[in-house]
């Protein structure tokens, strides 16, 4: 890569470590509903940057367990928050990465997740009842990690995904909703876990995904929208699952992701010059990993977990990232 900009791993590690220390920051309290997710994003980014131990393991496990909602049988995003399927998956992913899944009451979590499936096949996020193909994917992945996929009504689940397919080949959040790259990722990854990729027109979908790349190298989520670093994961993961990752221009995308690095404070932003956050840091690093950027761990695009972890659990599906550069 010569004189090209480089991923500043030590700085990003420091940035993630510092996130828990900023006690006066208003934003943090307002994002309490995403706190468990933030821990998962931070830990995954550290793992991919080969700094898994930069955060204290015991402290993290204790935090996760403090978010357990005894009444519902799932995890909330923060202590005393109601159980939500998104926080529940993040908790499971964290515990899997920390090799502490034995702390979870698998029967109860399985019951909680299955209770959120609707007659149409989609899943709700919580008792409030919002539905979204994201929650469907979350349910499928969580059940898979817990070894309880056999308890899922697969036909009903796959049927809902099929009905979210749009005329342009993409998928939306609910039946009738516009195609969106993040929803394409969740639908494709859910089908991969269920070994049902046969139900989609893979070539048209991969074409739609490759069309997301803009002349500046970045990817957008829908036609005529702005590029954003987080799509580096949504688009690339789906293309990896379809084994068509080389349909985008990797060099240009790497350059775009690195241009969104905050080289003063650490972290990666949605696009150059913006404020970094742990979400875009994680998905920028994950995107770089799929593109074969040197010095990173492999990420599994189906589970958005380190590939070592899913391989060890025997969950690796048939996906292809770009070869690791040296």
């Amino acid at each position: 890569m010569g004189a090209e900009p480089k991923l500043n791993i030590p700085l990003h590690v420091k940035y993630i470590q510092s996130l828990g220390e900023n006690k006066d920051d208003l934003t943090y309290h307002l994002t309490a509903h995403l706190r468990m997710n933030a821990v998962y994003w931070g830990l995954t980014a550290l793992y991919i940057m080969k700094n898994k131990d930069a955060l204290d393991r015991e402290e993290m496990i204790e935090y996760v367990m403090s978010c357990w909602d005894e009444q519902a049988g799932g995890f909330g995003a923060h202590p005393d928050h109601d159980a939500h399927i998104h926080a529940t998956l993040s908790a499971i992913q964290i515990l899997v990465m920390q090799d502490a899944l034995d702390r979870v009451d698998v029967d109860r979590v399985t019951k909680f997740i299955l209770s959120l499936q609707q007659p149409s096949g989609v899943f709700a996020g919580d008792a409030f009842g919002e539905i979204d193909t994201r929650f469907l994917y979350i349910a499928v992945q969580a059940l898979s990690l817990l070894g309880r996929l056999h308890e899922l009504d697969v036909e009903k689940t796959v049927g809902y995904i099929q009905r979210c397919r749009n005329f342009d080949g993409g998928f939306g959040a609910i039946i009738g909703a516009e195609s969106h790259a993040a929803q394409v990722f969740v639908c494709t990854a859910a089908l991969a876990i269920l070994d049902r990729l046969d139900v989609i027109d893979q070539e048209t979908l991969a074409w739609w995904l490759s069309e997301r790349q803009l002349p500046n190298g970045g990817l957008n989520g829908r036609p005529e929208k702005l590029e954003d670093v987080c799509y580096s994961f949504w688009v690339l993961s789906a293309l990896s699952i379809l084994k068509k990752l080389n349909w985008i221009d990797a060099d240009k995308l790497i350059k775009f992701i690195l241009s969104a690095e905050d080289l003063e404070h650490g972290g990666i932003a949605d696009r150059p010059g913006d404020q970094p956050d742990v979400f875009h840091t994680q998905f920028g690093v994950a995107g770089l990993s799929l593109l074969g950027y040197p010095g990173l761990e492999d990420i599994d695009p189906v589970y958005c977990l380190p590939a070592k972890i899913t391989e060890a659990k025997g969950l690796r599906k048939d996906w292809e990232a770009l070869p690791r550069r040296v």
Binding site: E21, D24, A32, R35, V39, L55, Y63, S66, P79, V278
Partner: peptide, 20 residues
């Protein structure tokens, strides 16, 4: 009133806004 949990809390600091 029940205050927010303020135990061990990685990536999750305690926040101060009296009204909220």
């Amino acid at each position: 009133p029940i205050p927010q949990y303020d135990g061990v809390n990685p990536l999750a600091p305690i926040f101060y806004n009296p009204e909220y």
